Simulated assay, not measured.
Amino acid sequence: MEFFCENPAAGHADDRIWKGYVKQLRRHGDTVEADISGKGSAMHVIIGRYEYGRYLCIPDCGVGSTLAALDDCFWNREQLERQMGRTDAITLSEALKAISKELEDMG
């Protein structure tokens, strides 16, 4: 699955818009695993549900965060930026939005 990312604050035009990809989307009950890539980064993510909502875990990067709704790019990006760079946080938040649409189609 392909999606687009945007960082209007980037200095160079080439850094403002890029493509991202979700590969190997797997659902196991309330847990989803996916490989997400964009702008030179690749991450294996685990998205789960717990009593207070959803969470995201990226074991290889040592990143973990609570999430708002999967399609809430602003809130999710801000949470992820605390632990990683802006470009990767934007890529992940847009990937989560794309995944939310895919999960709706999966039922």
Rank of each mutant, 00 (worst) to 15 (best):
I90N: 06
V63W: 11
I99D: 01
Q24E: 15
G62M: 11
L25G: 02
F74M: 10
H44S: 05
M1H: 11
A42Q: 15
S65D: 03
G85F: 11
G62A: 05
P8K: 07
C5R: 09
A13F: 13
Q24D: 15
R26C: 08
L67T: 00
E2P: 01
P8V: 00
K23Q: 13
R26L: 03
G53V: 03
G40C: 10
S65Y: 06
G11A: 13
A68Y: 09
D60V: 06
I47Q: 03
V63H: 10
E104S: 09
M106T: 01
R27H: 02
D15S: 03
D72L: 02
E33P: 01
A42Y: 14
Q79G: 07
T66H: 13
L70W: 01
E33F: 10
K19W: 13
M84L: 12
A68W: 02
A9E: 14
S65G: 05
L92W: 11
G62P: 11
A89F: 14
R86W: 09
G85R: 12
S93T: 03
R54S: 02
W18T: 00
S37E: 15
S41E: 13
I36F: 06
D88Y: 06
V63D: 08
G48I: 00
D35K: 12
A10M: 11
D14C: 11
G38W: 13
H28D: 15
I46K: 12
S65M: 09
K101E: 09
A34I: 02
M106A: 04
L25P: 03
A98F: 03
K97V: 00
A68N: 02
F3Q: 03
D71V: 00
R82D: 03
V32Q: 06
N76F: 11
I99P: 01
R16T: 04
L25S: 04
Y52S: 07
I17D: 05
E102R: 05
W18H: 01
C61M: 13
A89S: 09
C57P: 01
T87F: 13
